[in-house]
Design a protein around this nucleic acid. Structure first.
Lengths: 234, 234
DNA sequence: GAAGACAGCAAACAGTCGTTCACCGAGTGA
DNA sequence: TCACTCGGTGAACGACTGTTTGCTGTCTTC
């Protein structure tokens, strides 16, 4: 147990007993753990309320921690909110990554997309609910953090769209607008899924079908964009 | 309580002296006025926070009314929120009405649409901000009220779309999905306008241009929907 | 005119809130 | 080993919360 590792105190990892994440002292590992406990507690509470209605004591109570300890991790609840956005980055990024496929047929891509979205939303509702709720919520810092994240995802999606056939003559700006449109459809679909009764499979099917139709409409518009809408006027 | 209504006591107005809105006693007119004061105060406060973080005392203080008087009008803040949704009905309905035009050329309709949206949002930011913020907010009753309202607007919009050329072979369900897509684009555009700096004209222009492009893409998709996507499989 | 309804008020209630403080004890580095 | 760092604690603070109660003064109804 008492270390006695290799040569000397080697600054890189290797000192941790058995627990904790990569190369962290027991101390900071525990700190990270309780920080995570706070984030989880907040997220749990936010399934029924919004960030700005959350109380500091409420969160620490849910986390099983003394109120004063909160300040060791965050200056206020807004800061915790921003941290939650960064955490949600994970879920969203996984989602985007799973959507990205080299398949050629657009129809298959869209089918796959809605399925993947539904699956991810179901698997991690709290994070998606948090994003949906706070995207236009009352805390400016959180709103901005979410907007920045979404912009990143749009970039990735646009990158993929570029590789697909039918993107040759597209203006850069228009391409981004198209990406935003896709992302918005996906986000609103996720929000609809979150609001639907968990046990109502029919409702879920309906939402998925609707999302698919919307993606199809947009994609048809995309296919005929250049022939139908040349740069036009002004 | 002692019943005996009907016969005399004419239940229909007509007793009001000179003041107030259509055929209301001075009493109930004043009540309505302070009720409105409460709604206005709440809406004002919600420019910077969300409904669920609002305090009852906070609202009455802003309204210049004793806290206890609140209960003469609403059971709790959730009820006030629902009332605000119904009030926002006005703004939204005006918006939809102004969008509805008998013009034939789709391009003109869309141009007009984005202009009208921008104009209405600018003219009554608090109500639109409220809708955007609480559409996915923490109060279930309010969320549901907003969803119901939006469904109504979608109905109206679909009704108009039916009259336009190019709606002949459309499936009823698909038509509604298209309507939702349009409404979602409009709502998100409104939300973007609300988040933009009021004095940043360039940003506003950019948002409007983006909305226009999105509407165009969707409309192109709509035009080629039937030839491109026949009922398809399943 | 008198009797009653009733919107609004001040005061008081028991709680909860965010924040600060001194303090403890386990991990840390020499 | 020893001095030190620092995450977590419990108690205390003043301010503020939602709600109830009894009371006004004015409008309403007869």
């Amino acid at each position: 147990m008492p270390a006695s590792e290799t040569s000397s105190t080697a600054p890189i990892a290797a000192s941790a007993p058995t627990t904790a994440a990569a190369g962290l002292g027991v101390r900071s590992a525990k700190k990270l753990a309780t920080r995570q406990t706070l984030l989880d507690a907040a997220l749990r509470l936010m399934e029924r309320q919004s960030l700005s209605s959350l109380g500091l004591r409420e969160v620490t109570r849910e986390a099983g921690i003394a109120p004063a300890a909160f300040y060791r991790h965050f200056a206020d609840l807004g800061e915790l909110g921003v941290a939650l956005v960064e955490e949600s980055l994970g879920c969203m990024h996984e989602l985007i990554r799973d959507i990205r496929t080299p398949e050629a047929e657009t129809e298959d891509i869209m089918r796959r997309t809605v399925d993947v979205v539904a699956e991810h939303v179901r698997a991690d509702m709290p994070h998606f609910r948090f994003i949906a709720r706070e995207r236009h919520g009352g805390v400016a810092a959180v709103r901005e953090a979410i907007a920045a994240q979404l912009d990143t995802y749009i970039d990735e999606l646009v990158e993929d769209l570029r590789l697909q056939p039918g993107s040759e003559g597209w203006d850069d700006g228009d391409m981004r607008v198209l990406g935003r449109l896709y992302v918005n459809v996906i986000m609103l679909t996720a929000a609809d899924l979150l609001d639907a009764d968990v046990n109502d499979l029919a409702a879920e099917e309906r939402i998925i079908a609707e999302a698919l139709t919307q993606l199809r409409i947009v994609s048809v518009g995309r296919e005929h964009w250049l022939t139908e809408r040349p740069p036009a006027d002004e």
